[in-house]
Design a protein around this nucleic acid. Structure first.
Length: 265
DNA sequence: CGGCCATCCTGCACGC
DNA sequence: TGCGTGCAGGATGGCC
């Protein structure tokens, strides 16, 4: 389940493997992942200039335009031929290839002349220097929304997914059902700090790997060992030993400690 | 504005 | 053993 740290890990890998490659052909076994009619002429013959990340989007910049990729739940980009679930293949002049593998087929690739058109709706990057605690407090104070779905809203803050939101709210001592504007400044600052420290630590650990697939999973992260609440339903809280609760919130499985995390509303 | 729902997909865990 | 049911979830779009 790629979130920001997993996508960052993938991007760093691709920077080493596909920059400078020239696309000579395109195969699209699953045409919902990439519209081949739109993309073929835009991609073939072009050389990859750079690979960067914005939130959970991967931007593969070409001489003109870019291929913007979202892995969603189970997408992977790999130069190693995967046995199953291939949705798109980019063939390079060198003889190498890049495979888009996606078991659940939610992942998408879109060619665009200007990536900003596709990424303009995104909220701040949580690890950006400009994303300060003061700005975050102001953002929270203006929202009457439940805090967990708010943190998952990519237009509010970009890059967080279900796992890291649960983890960050635990570290900040805030129950996921809390109303954003009611969270005390002290806990808001803790939340800002928790988001940044969790993401940084997870990038260092090369992300979190919850599910292991038998095929081609050669880039597992190790951050799952550091998870405090996610996936720990009914297990003792690591601070107070109260059983971790799991509820449904905004259609998402949500884990929290009912004692260490307070409900503000 | 905010919340809720369905949708897209497949594999896997669970209960009977 | 095997079958059916439900769950997992990122993002979008529709509805109230």
């Amino acid at each position: 389940m790629p979130e920001l740290p997993e996508v960052e890990t993938v991007v760093r890998g691709l920077q080493q493997t596909i920059v400078g490659e020239t696309i000579i052909d395109l195969e699209v076994p699953w045409d919902k992942a990439l519209n081949p009619d739109d993309a073929y002429d835009s991609l073939v013959g072009k050389t990859i200039q750079s690979v960067t990340r914005r939130a959970k989007f991967i931007i593969i910049k070409l001489e003109t335009g870019a291929l913007v990729v979202h892995l969603r739940m189970t997408g992977k980009l790999t130069p190693v031929f995967p046995e199953k679930w291939i949705t798109v293949i980019l063939h390079f002049q060198s003889g190498n290839a890049l495979y888009f593998q996606d078991m659940r087929k939610f992942g998408r690739m879109i060619y665009t002349d200007d990536p900003a058109d596709l990424l303009g709706h995104l909220g701040p990057e949580p690890l950006d220097e400009d994303f300060t605690a003061a700005i975050f407090l102001k953002m929270l104070s203006s929202k009457q929304r439940t805090i967990k779905p708010l943190l998952l809203d990519q237009t509010f803050l970009s890059g967080l997914g279900n796992i890291y939101v649960d983890e960050a709210l635990f570290l900040a001592g805030i129950q996921p059902q809390s109303i954003a504007s009611a969270v005390p400044a002290k806990n808001g600052v803790l939340l800002h700090q928790a988001i940044q420290s969790i993401l940084s630590a997870s990038i260092k650990a090369q992300g979190t790997t919850i599910l292991n697939f038998s095929h081609g999973d050669n880039q597992s992260g190790t951050y799952q060992a550091a998870l405090q609440v996610y996936g720990r339903k009914a297990q003792p809280c690591l601070i107070c030993e109260t059983p971790i609760e799991k509820i449904k919130l905004g259609q998402r499985g949500t884990h929290f400690c009912p004692k260490c995390q307070l409900n503000y509303n």
